[in-house]
Design a protein around this nucleic acid. Structure first.
Lengths: 215, 215
DNA sequence: AATCTTAGGCGTATGCCGTACACCTATGAG
DNA sequence: CTCATAGGTGTACGGCATACGCCTAAGATT
């Protein structure tokens, strides 16, 4: 009967993500999103309860786009690495939104579907029970932390700059490592760390323990 | 010559942390901290440039208290686990401040000293060059992610609740795993995940590769 | 003791923010 | 053509960080 809706949650999320990508996360506000859409600020509240929900929509937009179809080829470690890589790529495409994805990650349908896909591969690799729980959560932990380290750490370059100027007397190893760190690219670091974690997953740690693929 | 200072950065940081611990991170404001100290809001600006710096002080207060003296006993994996555990304990003692520690982690002197201690052990274990960089960053990633998963994830209980009510048809593994997850305590999960990561660190992967302690 | 100098402390004001509320209006149904 | 209804909007409020300028306490100097 009444007048029809002129917006959708999808359009609102897209507008919010556009603001974030263009002007940074700090510029995200209900006012900014409404301006982006050419409507009044309060119009948004016909579609979302509050700012939190809007942020959730943005995260779902980013994380929901991850392809969770299980890779068919390669050892189980390799297949998990593909799934993890897809997640990293999608999040990394919107670096300014990274803090949001961290805050609203729980309850995201995208993350749930991703977790399901990873679990399937872990199960196939011979893990079950608490060990599979720990493997999944450990992988999630690594991904969350690594993405943040990559995108939040060097935000200001403070960390790297601070490391470069350390007194070698007080921080001998750190000073030396800072030199090597510059030679390790972000991709290499991520893949290397992931390989490390995957190597640590004990596949088939049942009564008949058999070490996984490429030890 | 003029009147002496009545506050210190330490007292301000302690007051801010008290506000956070008591009323939550959302309640942290320049006003709240100044009230806590019994001074005017603007008085704080004689000691910190802005809110960001105040948050940094809080993080330093939390992270700077971590004992980074290297444990003398045990395999290198065990000694790193002790250092990691100390970090987790300090951060976990102020769960509401966790997001702050993540945002301001870089450039924290406490984290630098901790990293130095971990690097020393990794070096002793036979790692060097890029591999040591990756091992350190991988460990940091795991710790950051795990702490967040532990303290931010279950904040609202949304995630767990959502998992419990999943359709077993669409998420067969996740639904089953949710059951096991309830049996795994937070400590067990953290230690298990850490053991997994440590297991994946290739010690002494130089020309004369020798596998580390307790494979 | 009196004064001066100077930085610490504070009150006020500005421009953001999220959002509650009441109002107006476009619209499809009848 | 009318009307009920939900969508869209304008205004207003309280809270935030913080820029600015004033007042004042207290050590240094006389």
């Amino acid at each position: 009967m009444p007048r029809p809706r002129s917006l959708t949650q999808d359009r609102i999320a897209a507008a919010a993500l556009a603001v974030i990508d263009r002007d940074g996360l700090a510029a995200l506000s209900m006012r900014a999103v409404s301006t982006e859409l050419g409507v009044s600020t309060m119009a948004l509240y016909r579609y979302v309860d509050d700012r939190r929900e809007l942020e959730g929509l943005v995260v779902e937009l980013v994380l929901g786009g991850v392809d969770v179809s299980p890779p068919s080829e390669g050892a189980w470690q390799e297949r998990i690495a593909v799934l993890v890589g897809r997640m990293r790529d999608h999040v990394g495409a919107h670096p300014e939104a990274v803090p949001l994805t961290m805050i609203h990650r729980h309850g995201s349908a995208g993350v749930l579907r991703w977790s399901e896909a990873v679990l399937a591969i872990l199960a196939e690799a011979g893990l079950d029970g608490p060990e599979r729980v720990i493997a999944l959560r450990g992988l999630l932990s690594y991904v969350i932390g690594a993405v943040q380290l990559e995108h939040l750490g060097p935000l200001s370059g403070e960390g790297t700059a601070a490391m470069a100027g350390l007194s070698p007397a007080e921080f001998p190893h750190l000073a030396e490592t800072a030199g090597h760190a510059r030679l390790v690219g972000a991709d290499e670091e991520f893949r290397g760390g992931l390989a490390m974690v995957l190597r640590g997953i004990r596949a088939g740690a049942g009564p008949f323990r058999s070490r996984g693929g490429r030890g």
